[in-house]
Simulated scan of single mutants.
Amino acid sequence: MKQFPTDRLDALFQAILVNDVVDARVDLPSAIRTDYPAAHLADGFAISAQLWREGFDRTELLAFIDRLRRGADMDQTDQLWFKHVRAKFKHLRFAFVLYGADHSCPRLFKSITTSMGLLQDAFRNGRQDAIGRQSFLLKLMLSRPMLAWLNREVDRIRLDTGAGFRDFTTRQVATLRETLSQPTLNGHRFHAARKIVSRQVSFHDDMRTIHPAPEHLIMSRYLSAINGLMGRYHDELVLRHALGELDYAHEQFALPADIRHRLERVATLYP
């Protein structure tokens, strides 16, 4: 698998760190490209895998989890460190779905990123029971045999072709268009739409780093704005659910006008 210099890894991670920042000044290109050579897709997976492998220390991560489990105080530096580690895991999770021939993430890797997110929410909200549960699960999933298995999954991935990637992207956009065709949606559909946006941000972050072109930077920044707006709205929905004002999983709700407008513009420009 191709290896990239440190400055490319740093550039990719800097792009990831702003993938939910809203920049109202960025507009879309006149058309959105979906045809990419297989070599570009292989590079996208390779840099995502390298960022993950070189982006965390297992011993340090387990020590952090132990400190959380014991109820140690975590300052903003600690929280930011864990957020950055989780971001590298999430980026590789997106890469599995984007570039793999079956467009799915290995179950164990998906479980780890999910557990890391639940742990992050738990220590932000002071829920010690959830911290204990997720800490236990993460320690099991980050054992040496499990990580060795994950590395083998990375090494033996079967990458998609350019045509396969185009078809996958077309199906994703079709799902997004179907969602937008309805005046309201539930939590599941909202989450699915947000994942589509997040994966496309991830793709253009990869491409702007290793195959720079103005279209990738523009798409990354425009989609990042949508990602950020949807993330903030998700937090509002979760709060309303906690207050008993909304059944997030089943009740229908309308997308805010700004999010809908931006999504519709994107969906219109894809072939």
Rank of each mutant, 00 (worst) to 15 (best):
Q128E: 05
D129C: 02
A130T: 09
A130D: 10
A130I: 09
I131N: 10
R133M: 10
R133F: 07
R133W: 08
Q134L: 10
S135N: 11
S135C: 09
F136W: 08
K139L: 03
K139D: 06
M141T: 09
L142Y: 06
S143M: 08
S143F: 12
P145M: 07
M146R: 13
L147E: 15
L147K: 11
L147Y: 10
A148V: 08
A148I: 08
A148E: 14
L150G: 12
L150F: 13
N151F: 03
R152H: 15
E153I: 05
E153M: 10
V154T: 15
V154R: 14
V154D: 15
D155L: 04
R156P: 11
R156Y: 14
I157F: 15
L159P: 08
D160E: 10
D160R: 05
T161H: 14
A163V: 07
G164P: 03
G164M: 03
F165I: 03
F165L: 10
R166G: 03
D167P: 13
F168K: 00
F168Q: 02
T169S: 14
T170Q: 15
A174W: 05
T175M: 11
L176G: 14
R177P: 02
E178L: 14
E178D: 15
E178V: 08
T179Q: 12
L180W: 00
L180G: 03
Q182V: 06
P183Q: 13
L185I: 08
L185Q: 05
N186K: 01
G187N: 07
G187I: 02
R189W: 14
R189G: 05
R189C: 09
F190Q: 08
H191Q: 12
A192H: 10
A192F: 07
A193E: 00
R194H: 06
K195V: 04
K195P: 02
K195Q: 09
I196C: 03
I196T: 08
I196F: 04
I196H: 07
V197Y: 07
V197W: 04
S198D: 11
R199Q: 11
R199T: 04
Q200G: 12
Q200N: 14
Q200T: 09
V201P: 12
V201W: 06
V201D: 11
S202E: 07
F203K: 00
H204R: 07
H204D: 11
H204N: 14
D205N: 13
D205Y: 00
M207P: 13
R208Y: 15
I210K: 12
I210G: 10
H211T: 06
H211Y: 05
H211I: 04
P212C: 00
P212W: 00
P212N: 01
P212I: 01
P212M: 01
A213I: 01
A213Q: 02
P214N: 07
P214V: 06
P214G: 07
P214T: 08
P214H: 06
P214D: 11
E215Y: 04
E215Q: 11
E215N: 04
E215D: 09
H216L: 05
L217T: 13
L217W: 04
M219H: 09
S220A: 03
S220T: 03
R221W: 01
R221H: 02
Y222N: 06
L223H: 03
L223D: 02
L223Q: 03
S224C: 09
A225S: 10
I226H: 02
I226V: 05
N227R: 00
N227A: 00
